[in-house]
Computed example of a mutant assay.
Amino acid sequence: MKKTILILLLFVAILSACEKDDFCTQNPVTSRLIIRFYDDTNRETPKRVQNLIINSEANSEPIDRYNNISTDSIVIPLNPNALETVYNFSKDGVINQFSITYDIQEEYVSRSCGYKIVYSNLEFSSPINTWFTGFTPTTTLNIDDQNTAHVQIFH
């Protein structure tokens, strides 16, 4: 009888130690910045950029290289460990710097996904415009939509 109770208790202990599988279905959890390039003369028309290289100011290695590729939109991450991210956009060897400042908040998503970073009060600036002729908007409240562009750059 004691053996049966001991085996039953051991079996219950093993079953209660198991966790259900939990998968994060929200990928990516932390939003990234979407930039779309437009023609400066006709600001409603998307314009592709040839030979674009994007470097983070914090890292000299290119994060994205669009050599021999033409693109009119890009998706780039922001640095969750700083309140500013600076990128250098190089087109045919001409570099344009683009700065993004923001506030950071952590938001709990779920047990499987953990926390995500919410970027708010974003401000954009370009201290030296070489091949950029402008951009809109200069500020935005937050990045929460991954279906539309957050910033439009004119060139």
Rank of each mutant, 00 (worst) to 15 (best):
M1A: 15
K2Y: 10
K3C: 14
T4I: 14
L6N: 10
L9I: 09
L10V: 03
F11V: 13
F11S: 15
A13W: 03
S16R: 07
C18A: 08
C18T: 10
K20F: 08
D22G: 06
F23K: 07
F23N: 09
F23H: 09
T25M: 15
Q26I: 15
Q26H: 12
P28Y: 00
V29L: 11
V29R: 12
V29N: 11
T30Q: 05
S31K: 15
R32D: 11
R32V: 09
R32K: 15
R32M: 12
I34L: 06
F37Q: 07
Y38N: 10
Y38K: 13
Y38W: 06
D39E: 11
D39W: 06
D39H: 09
T41E: 13
N42M: 11
R43D: 11
E44A: 12
E44K: 13
P46H: 05
K47E: 12
K47V: 05
N51K: 08
I53W: 02
N55K: 13
N55C: 07
N55A: 03
N55R: 15
S56W: 02
S56F: 02
E57D: 12
A58M: 09
N59E: 07
S60M: 06
I63E: 00
R65T: 15
R65V: 14
Y66E: 09
Y66D: 03
N67S: 14
N68K: 12
I69Y: 13
I69N: 08
S70D: 12
S70V: 11
T71P: 02
D72R: 08
D72F: 09
S73T: 14
S73K: 13
I74R: 01
I74W: 00
I74N: 00
V75Q: 11
V75E: 11
P77K: 08
L78A: 08
P80K: 10
P80M: 00
P80A: 06
N81Q: 11
A82R: 10
L83Y: 13
V86M: 08
V86H: 07
Y87L: 00
F89A: 03
S90A: 09
K91R: 11
K91G: 02
D92E: 04
V94Q: 10
F98Y: 09
F98W: 05
I100G: 09
T101V: 10
Y102Q: 07
Y102D: 00
E106N: 14
E107T: 11
Y108N: 03
Y108F: 10
V109H: 00
R111A: 14
R111T: 14
S112K: 06
C113T: 01
G114P: 03
G114S: 04
I117W: 01
V118C: 07
V118Y: 06
S120H: 04
S120D: 03
N121E: 08
L122Q: 05
E123M: 07
E123F: 01
F124V: 00
F124D: 02
P127N: 04
P127K: 04
I128M: 13
N129P: 09
T130N: 13
W131Q: 04
F132S: 04
T133V: 11
F135I: 05
T136E: 11
P137K: 03
P137A: 05
P137W: 02
P137F: 02
L141Q: 14
N142K: 13
I143T: 06
I143R: 04
D144M: 09
D144Y: 12
D144W: 10
D145I: 08
A149R: 01
H150P: 04
H150G: 01
V151R: 00
I153E: 02
H155K: 10
